[in-house]
């Protein structure tokens, strides 16, 4: 059974809590320093998106398992405005916050698996997983 831990995100400090949660889990699972830093960066980005564009939502972290692989799964959900053109936000260079290489395509590259689901007017869910090597 997977235990899931969640952090509500509604202000900038919650981003730090979400990172902390992710880092603890990553350490526990045995991720090295670089992967820990990548996972927390991915969490930062996802949490920032929630904070900036949805207002509030939550980040949940859980241990994942698939075909003998172990990993960490980040689930970011919000009830914000949703994303009209997902293809566009997944394009490199498209960013509303002026970040370099950041944004969703950056998160996708930091992680091993990435899934996004968004409905305009009702919210967005992003699931990103990193497997232990």
């Amino acid at each position: 059974m997977n235990i899931q831990s969640c952090v509500e995100v509604c202000n900038e400090w919650d981003i730090v809590s979400a990172r902390q949660l992710g880092r603890n889990m990553a350490k526990e699972l045995g991720f090295g320093n670089v992967d820990q830093a990548r996972i927390t960066t991915a969490i930062s980005e996802l949490a920032r998106n929630i904070y900036l564009y949805a207002g509030n939502g939550k980040i949940c972290i859980e241990a994942a398992e698939k075909m003998g692989k172990r990993g960490l799964k980040i689930i970011a959900t919000d009830n914000g405005p949703g994303i009209k053109d997902i293809r566009k936000v997944m394009e490199d260079g498209y960013t509303t916050s002026g970040g370099l290489g950041a944004g969703l395509p950056g998160v996708k590259r930091l992680m091993d698996e990435f899934m996004i689901d968004s409905v305009v007017g009702s919210g967005t869910e992003i699931i990103a997983t990193k497997w232990l090597r």
Binding site: A37, T41, D92, G101, A102, P105, G106, R109
Partner: peptide, 12 residues
Amino acid sequence: IGYGFAYREHQS
């Protein structure tokens, strides 16, 4: 890590 981010975007 941020530089790594930017580097990968540059690649793509």
